[in-house]
Nucleic acid binder design. Structure first.
Lengths: 336, 336
DNA sequence: GTGAAAGCGCTAACAG
DNA sequence: CTGTTAGCGCTTTCAC
């Protein structure tokens, strides 16, 4: 068993209480004894037992971050940045992966409550349906939550931080239409996923405002929003005989799939068809034809999420927190 | 404050001890009272306080995973899989990110010890120099460690699990030479990084065995092993007038950078120049010209690391554990 | 079968 | 300034 405060107390010839105070740098204890205690502790490689400490303090100093998929570079960045901002704010961050499963989300919430985290940043599973349970249980346990990169049921009093997806999609689509593209195909995932639904509405608004009728545009709904699925869609597009002059994708990985597949099928991008992505992950630039896309500023999402969460922890009522919508930014590259 | 065992005891009219036993499904307590207690606990949404529990049990049930960079898809996959295998083995996994910094590694080790994790899987920072400190402190604290995806100083009694990088690089290089490529450029990062050094020696061995002299090959050493750095190197290659018929890269992201840059400069891949990567991350296949590469089976690394770690926790002496070298697999695609 | 009591390692009044 | 005491919430002998 590791060395304990009690042991150090004996070695230093003082009481455990004094050691505890000294180790925590309390002014209450005489500087000399403090130094002596600290050096003894250091010599013996004393490292406090977190569990005892947190139990006694009745506070964990921990925040939780729940993400659906760590292999998605977008979320990976969110993890890194949230981790940094949490540290800066004086908290530890416990990272939990839901693997896009409601079941795992349930388990994770239990862990989070069990670990008495002081706040949670949650990106709900990207699957149709509601992740209401997770938010309800957390708030029931009086743990502040903020929903990041998406929003949970508008009007639910779960504060959120996200980029303006509708606006971003409206902007990139409008840009295409202004450049004379009139026969777009929109490539998305299942409906009833909030972040996809609002992007779609941004796209439809842009089309309507550009005077493009419902019959002039096509929407491809895929079961998943990844590279492989997009390749399949691109094959369809190629087979359909090139009726389209623009492919608007809901994320960069899908746009990359479309770019690669269509290039191989002999399409000239952007001459034959313009392609846009969304997110501006590293691969948007690392694409053979660098992608026109919409940047979501993950760093800001992380920063604002932590900032909001600390305010909630500080007592800000959730219903006064509101939903933070961060600006998006159109990034024009060679694919359009 | 949340509901405690004591509260449930009162509600059920039994003692805290009985509640504790019942909640942990002990056979010692009568089935009826057990059910009654469990339903009361469930009704009131009882969730045990981890800190109290772990303190009392003198065991955390936690493993630690230290990785240098979560935005690297390769490590992200490792995280996901290790997380899964840890859960399966009945442990929780605490994920710590060192951001490739020794300082952060130090902090992380302290956290790990403080959290009394029962074992650690560590991928040391990918920077020149030794991360001996981290291993030393962990072993001093009698916490078993396994080094994953790389090895820490051969003969150091830190067991490791990794793929055979030398063998893998030898194989892919030999394959190129057999196909008639004789003027290779090898693109790598700083020396004194173990995983890079042994790949290089695999490459050099292959060249020697193929009868290619030192003067016939070029090695480009970049400060970093990422996409951007590789693009710079590729520009050099293009400017140098096409003296090379093969570019061998130490990872896929770099190969992707070379593919994209050279394509844009008008090179025909693989006719003018063959390009190989390493790792077989998703982007190797998602490349415009799918990459010939060497697969590192991350799932196996994760599985074997956890398996080895649990054996160490079970009492296996580290010096009997040895270093596990997993086979690599040449994946031939269109870039060669 | 169930309860009483002690203890995990630390913190935090409160005395002195 | 330092020590004594009493918990934090849970587990775990050991009696009954």
């Amino acid at each position: 068993m590791a060395i304990r405060i009690k042991d150090i107390a004996k070695l230093a010839g003082v009481s455990p209480a004094t050691v505890s105070l000294a180790l925590n740098g309390s002014e209450l204890v005489n500087e000399d004894t403090r130094k002596r205690i600290n050096s003894i502790a250091h010599e013996h490689g004393y490292i406090p037992n977190t569990y005892a400490r947190r139990l006694a303090m009745r506070r964990s100093g921990m925040l939780g971050l729940v993400i659906p998929d760590i292999e998605n570079v977008y979320y990976a960045s969110l993890v890194r940045m949230t981790n940094n901002y949490a540290q800066t704010a004086g908290y530890g961050l416990s990272i939990l992966i839901s693997d896009n499963s409601r079941e795992l989300e349930e388990k994770i919430v239990t862990e989070l409550i069990s670990a008495r985290v002081e706040g949670v940043i949650c990106v709900p599973a990207n699957i149709p349906g509601s992740s209401g349970e997770i938010f309800a249980r957390l708030t029931d346990a009086t743990i502040p939550v903020v929903c990041a990169t998406t929003r949970f049921e508008p009007g639910s009093f779960i504060p959120s931080v996200m980029c303006g997806l509708r606006e971003g999609m409206y902007e990139v689509a409008s840009y295409l239409f202004r450049r004379g593209r009139r026969r777009p195909v929109y490539i998305t995932g299942p409906s009833d996923v909030y972040t996809l639904d609002i992007r779609r509405s941004g796209f439809l608004d842009a089309a309507r405002d550009a005077g493009i009728g419902e019959s002039e545009l096509k929407i491809i709904e895929l079961p998943e929003v990844n590279y492989a699925a997009a390749c399949v869609a691109a094959q369809q597009i190629a087979d359909s005989g090139g009726n389209f002059d623009a492919a608007v994708c809901v994320n960069d990985m899908m746009a990359l799939g479309v770019v690669n597949t269509l290039s191989r099928r002999g399409f000239d991008i952007p001459r034959d068809i313009a392609i846009t992505g969304y997110d501006d992950v590293i691969f948007a630039e690392a694409s053979p034809t660098p992608l026109t896309t919409v940047r979501q500023d993950i760093d800001s999402i992380a920063r604002e999420s932590i900032a909001l969460l600390t305010r909630l922890i500080g007592g800000l009522p959730p219903d006064e927190a509101g939903d933070i919508v961060l600006p998006t930014q159109l990034v024009i590259r060679q694919s359009t």
